[in-house]
Design a protein around this nucleic acid. Structure first.
Length: 937
RNA sequence: GCUCGAGUGGUGGAAUUGGUAGACACGUUGGACUUAAAAUCCAAUGAUCAGUAAUGGUCGUAUGGGUUCAAGUCCCAUCUCGAGUACCA
């Protein structure tokens, strides 16, 4: 009987879905286990073979855990709001809702075909109003909270008002926006309501501010830092410029230190943690206060090198620094203003590509050195960033290359404070291997001692504060886009007002035009009905706006990461109408035990979601601080692109070997036009794109060889392999096994369809163990010791490998096992039953089919995973355990005078020579399996 | 530049805590079955030397050193590749 995978897979997929086999229960006596994938973005292109890699791994682990007796939650959903869906809608001229639903259906069909054990009854979509209702609800929570830096947690804004009533903000240690307004309780009480609101807005976790943002005119929206690559937008690769706009921001920077230290408590991949650490960018140093000459003002500059304080020869401010205008002398005003104008015009791209050129202008003002009181000139330059530290730098040319270059360029003095170190060509950047000189009381000290003494001195003079700085910026939360969560916000007297929780969700209105506008107005402005009637609490026509009872709504929408920052909590209780998830369900499932997804989200989603969960935790809304205990990054599966060479300016293409020194252009071609020997099938190519009909092709030895290159799999590179093709030809089980077999889960690896034969023939062999001459054929004998040995070695190996997420070696172990069983012609029922269960997480369809044929009515999913019995080799009535790789492990019995246990518990024998060479006192142990004869010391 | 990570046959990749390097698979070669092909099955397959052969020797995990009875694995230096980040003071 042939292995008819198409029939088998359809049958079992139907069975699972009809019987809701994978439905997880919120109440159970079993221990819980929560396995989650990063939910996909339903794009128009459908899935390619790279997408399911992580899903296959998580599915294997989920099924394995079910076998092990856990109540497993393994949900799936769609991150269906956001830019790509909208871009696709714009391109096709259809409503995003319509295209999104269509894409989701396609994704679902493709996912189903792979036989995943998702609990689809818990499906969520971020663009569903039942879901984004709670995203809006959480936004309101953010708005109504502030961050207490002393208690290190977010607190209700009511608490803040109480504090203001009692003592103003004099002693308050809170995270807030730039504003130097200080007030006591009396002043606070005298403020108008509007002024109070303005003050509070500076403290809220979600706040409005006129910030410089990364504006992408082509996409018509602002982008977060992590959505920009090399000054171009991540999506589409369009130019990004700096622009000031009023935007909602989220005060994620308040959580910098907790997000950083929290990394120590979670089992996430080290490289990913490292990325988050770098992104948060903690640096410890001193805020040095410089008195401005002739002004009652101070310039504060952050430095990590207070030991070099005596090397300061000038101070540089960012062009946007608030003091620049005040302190600039009249004769320098023109220069300065021109420079500020110039640098504000520069795009993000220009600034990055223009790292090397040096520019700056002298303000004419001076500050006093805090320790020597020497006059120090103040310059401005755009190498100083307004957003980091205080936007001011104390320049130490001898110890910092940029300051050095700047000083050389503008002929500013350079003082060498490093003893016997030559700085005539470049600055000395090391923190070690020097002692200070020209530094008064710091002379002779090294970095550490110099640092501490300088800190102490500056503190004493009230000229320095110990400070910790972070690179992490607050996250811009507004998008000038249609396809996103609307803000539950209207504007009264130009101040934002939250719509009451009772009236959520604020539904996304229908608009005729969802194209972004170049001037930055959101498409929501095109809606005829986008005003808030505060008497009747509902959305009404814009015509009714009177600014007394009917108000203008917020036109922006939330960014893509809003909905994905908390979705793991919603899966626990996805249909709840009264809460984002019930307390009971939150307390039962608590957190994700295993989260699988790509590392490209390291500084985006994976950071924002940690922050979001911390925030919810602070408010007591969730029971755990970190939502994902363990994270695994699956590597990308890369495509194997094919190119042909076109002679420049002609319509002639030449075979790969003919390319010598001609000018050629590489043209991507569809990979299905190329066979496994890299030979081009010209007929196929002409069928694919008729433009090649009239082209000339130069062959070599009747062959036309293409050039191949490994790159990201993408539709535009014509290198996509669809899982559907593979399922048709080999079946889902083969695809699942092969994707796991390709290599370690976390590694990037190129797809190569040729190798799939190996896993396919493995499944056929497995099938043939039970089938002989068209018949199902198993025997009920007592299993032979040989077959038991094979089975138990496999059980042990597979168990260990799954626990270590080493799925590629598991698949190898299966192959070895089946090869072994088929070579001894084992078709014993009990052996095969165990093997079925063992294999079912990897290749569920074929396993279920055989399981069923073996006479079981219940689905294989509820059977316990086979336990391993150690395999022994018996010799002279002594049993020796055999390890999986065939090495004999000898338990040493106390037979010699040596205390061998102290040396090693087990020793490994070279089976060829019977020698064992363990050291540390023992020169040589000669052992024959079964008995220890000699120990030579 | 800085921070991580990785270099093993023709290819993807194995190798628990340092203990038979190259598992498993692809590819290649030879054989069986077939009129033939496909499919399937069997065998060989790191390099090199000796031998008719069984077999045996030598060299081999990017390069050069080191620690160790023993190194792909640990340490130092160098080279190459990949990822992240970038005027962060």
């Amino acid at each position: 009987m042939a292995y008819d995978f198409i029939h088998i897979e359809e049958k079992w997929q139907k069975h699972w879905s009809d019987n809701k086999v994978f439905k997880a229960d919120n109440e159970s006596n079993l221990p819980k286990y929560y396995v989650m994938d990063m939910f996909p973005y339903p794009s128009g292109a459908g899935l390619h073979v790279g997408h399911p890699l992580g899903y296959i791994a998580s599915d294997i682990y989920s099924r394995y855990k079910r076998h092990k007796g856990f109540n497993v939650l393994h949900p799936q959903g769609y991150d269906s709001f956001g830019l790509p869906a909208e871009q696709y809608a714009i391109q096709t001229g259809r409503h995003p809702l319509e295209t999104t639903n269509e894409n989701i259906l396609r994704y679902r069909a493709q996912l189903d075909r792979l036989g995943f054990s998702f609990d689809w009854s818990r499906e969520i979509r971020t663009s569903n109003k039942d879901y984004y209702k709670w995203t809006q609800w959480m936004f309101i929570k953010l708005y109504n909270s502030w961050y207490d830096l002393s208690l290190k947690k977010a607190r209700s804004i009511e608490d803040l008002i109480l504090i203001f009533n009692k003592s103003g903000n004099i002693n308050l240690n809170a995270s807030k926006s730039e504003s130097s307004l200080k007030f006591n309780s009396k002043q606070w009480c005298s403020f108008s309501e509007q002024k109070k609101e303005k003050v509070l807005l500076d403290y809220r976790m979600a706040f409005l501010s006129d910030t410089e943002v990364n504006w992408c005119p082509e996409l018509g929206t602002v982008l977060a830092n992590d959505e920009i690559i090399d000054g171009l937008s991540e999506r589409g690769g369009y130019e990004v410029i700096r622009k000031k706009m009023i935007q909602w921001s989220i005060r994620i920077s308040a959580y910098s230190d907790r997000l950083l230290s929290g990394l120590n408590d979670i089992d996430w991949p080290d490289p990913l943690k490292e990325m988050q650490r770098n992104w948060i960018g903690k640096s410890e140093g001193i805020l040095v206060k410089f008195d401005v000459l002739n002004f009652d003002k101070q310039i504060h500059a952050f430095t990590t090198r207070p030991d070099t304080i005596y090397g300061v020869t000038f101070v540089t401010l960012a062009p946007e620094h608030p003091l620049v205008e005040l302190i600039t002398t009249d004769d320098n005003k023109n220069h300065i203003n021109n420079y500020i104008l110039e640098s504000s015009k520069k795009t993000e791209r220009d600034r990055i590509s223009d790292v090397k050129s040096i520019s700056g202008v002298f303000t004419g003002a001076y500050v006093l050195h805090p320790l020597t009181n020497i006059k120090i000139p103040v310059w401005i330059s755009d190498y100083v960033l307004a957003g980091y530290g205080t936007g001011a730098v104390m320049a130490v040319p001898c110890g910092d290359q940029r300051d050095y270059n700047f000083a050389k360029f503008f002929n500013l003095p350079i003082v060498n404070i490093f003893k016997d170190i030559d700085i005539s060509n470049e600055a000395f950047k090391e923190k070690n291997n020097f002692v200070l000189t020209n530094s008064e009381e710091l002379n002779g000290l090294d970095f550490k001692k110099g640092y501490l003494l300088a800190l102490e001195k500056l503190k004493k003079l009230d000229k320095g504060i110990h400070e910790i700085n972070y690179k992490l910026r607050d996250a811009v939360f507004s998008r000038q886009r249609y396809w996103g969560e609307p803000f539950p916000v209207y504007y009264k007297d130009n101040m934002p007002v939250m719509i009451s929780e009772k009236y959520l969700p604020v539904e996304l209105p229908n608009v005729d035009k969802y194209l972004p506008t170049e001037d930055g107005n959101s498409p929501l402005g095109n809606s005829a009905n986008w005003a808030w009637d505060s008497l009747n609490n509902k959305i009404v026509s814009n015509k009714l706006i009177n600014n007394e009872t009917v108000f203008k709504m917020e036109l922006n929408t939330m960014p893509g990461w809003a909905g994905s920052s908390w979705y793991f909590n919603r899966y626990m209780d996805p249909t709840n109408k009264d809460e984002f998830a019930s307390k009971k369900s939150l307390n039962y499932w608590k957190e994700v035990d295993l989260y699988i997804g790509g590392s490209e989200h390291a500084t985006g989603h994976l950071l924002y979601s940690r922050f979001w969960q911390y925030f919810l935790y602070d408010l007591g809304l969730v029971p755990v601080k970190d939502y994902a205990k363990k994270l695994i990054n699956q590597g990308m599966i890369l495509g194997n692109s094919a190119f042909i060479h076109r002679l420049n300016g002609t319509n002639t293409y030449i075979s790969n070997e003919l390319v010598k020194e001609q000018n050629v252009q590489l043209i991507h071609i569809e990979i299905s036009c190329v066979n496994s020997n890299n030979e081009l099938d010209l007929e196929e190519l002409r069928k694919w794109q008729p433009q090649f009909k009239n082209a000339k092709f130069e062959f070599l030895n009747d062959k036309f060889i293409v050039k191949r290159e490994v790159e990201k799999m993408s539709k535009s590179k014509y290198n996509v392999v669809s899982p559907d093709e593979i399922c048709e030809k080999y079946g889902a089980d083969t695809l699942r096994l092969y994707e796991m077999f390709l290599g370690p889960i976390e590694q990037a690896k190129p797809w190569n369809t040729a190798g799939i034969k190996g896993t396919f023939s493995f499944l056929k062999k497995f099938w043939n163990l039970f089938h002989q001459n068209e018949n199902f054929n198993v025997v009920n004998d007592k299993p032979s010791s040989e077959s038991l040995k094979i089975l138990h070695k496999t059980i042990k190996k597979i168990n260990d490998d799954i626990e270590n997420f080493s799925f590629n070696t598991s698949v190898s172990a299966f192959m070895i096992c089946v090869n072994g069983l088929s070579s001894i012609k084992c078709n014993n029922r009990s052996i095969l039953e165990s093997l079925c269960v063992l294999l079912s997480p990897f290749a569920p369809h074929i396993s279920e089919e055989i399981w069923n044929k073996l006479g079981h009515n219940e689905s294989i999913s509820f059977v316990n995973y086979p336990e391993c019995n150690p395999v022994y080799i018996k010799e002279n009535n002594v049993e020796y355990p055999v390890s999986f790789n065939g090495k004999l492990k000898f338990k040493l019995v106390q037979e010699s005078s040596l205390d061998i246990h102290q040396i090693k518990q087990n020793i490994i024998i070279d089976q060829r020579t019977n020698n064992y060479l363990d050291g540390r006192g023992i020169k040589k142990i000669i052992v024959v399996p079964g008995k220890i004869i000699n120990i030579v010391c």
